[in-house]
Amino acid sequence: MNSTVTSTKENAWAGGDNQPLGASYGKMMMWFFLVSDALTFSGFLAAYGFSRFKFIETWPIADEVFTHVPFTHGSYPMIYVALMTFILIMSSVTMVLAVDAGHKMQKNKVIWYMFLTVIGGAIFVGSQAWEWNTFIKGDKGALETKGGRILQFVKADSGERAALKDFAITIPGERVEHENKNGVWFYDEGYMPSYTVKEVVKGFKADSNILVRTETINEEGHKTLLSREESLKKLESATQVVEGANLIHNEYGSRLFGDFFFFITGFHGFHVLSGVIINLIIFFNVVIGTYERRGHYEMVEKVGLYWHFVDLVWVFVFTFFYLV
């Protein structure tokens, strides 16, 4: 019993029952932690803004990067992130409902709402993992030039993006990836792109319907398309094929875009994950009746604050990564 009861009458020098600013110690410290965490996230987002303003003319257009929805093909920009946002807001709502039920000491309601919150959070983390996976695997493929710029390909007649596999011609005799099963050497070699630069260039020359698209954004807000001659000239400076994204290369455009994507959504995803774990712990505490015996559900309120904060941060990440 004693271990679950935290409030004891103390004299004023030991803190007593005074509550500065009308907030209990735990709640106030949770708020101060959230303020400092908010500043950390602001630092990241401001750094993102810095890099973006620095390369304002060549920054990737988010609508063209995040176009996939699980279990479907085709291009649906923004739909999936919007859904993820809604799921997170929804789990925020079940969290407030849990806090509200806690104030009324309705244990069973708190259990159910906490359970739904955990489920919502888990779905969100899963969605983010899927987003990462799609981003890392990449979509259409591109070439990188000597200057580190990305060249993408477009079909001239329809204006749609062309994938490397749509036009690249396989040249027999070009090196293939070494796999463990093919040799005595005991490890696989690292990743090798599906095509070499030579194969892409040969395919480009054979197909007159393909044009190069550079990173530069023109006045209408689209990426600049080159003519056939300009494209051929540009292809001479290509040094490697890029498929997907890692911290050093990415096929979507500016390298920093990939870095910030991994860093900021990763940091946020880690917050969601830890939020789910903390919610789970509190959930089990509610189930075994800890707070019922303590006489109040303030712990639910405190993790609730953290959980809403995760939602709050996502609202900003959503705006600055996907909308603006």
Binding site: L21, W31, V35, S92, L305, H308, D311
Partner: peptide, 23 residues
């Protein structure tokens, strides 16, 4: 989100200002 889900609306205004205006 902050005012209604995180109940800042129900906190004392001094506490609310300390949290909001600093960041």
């Amino acid at each position: 989100i902050a005012w209604d889900f995180m109940h800042l609306r129900d906190e004392k205004s001094s506490f609310r200002r300390a949290i909001v205006w600093t960041p």
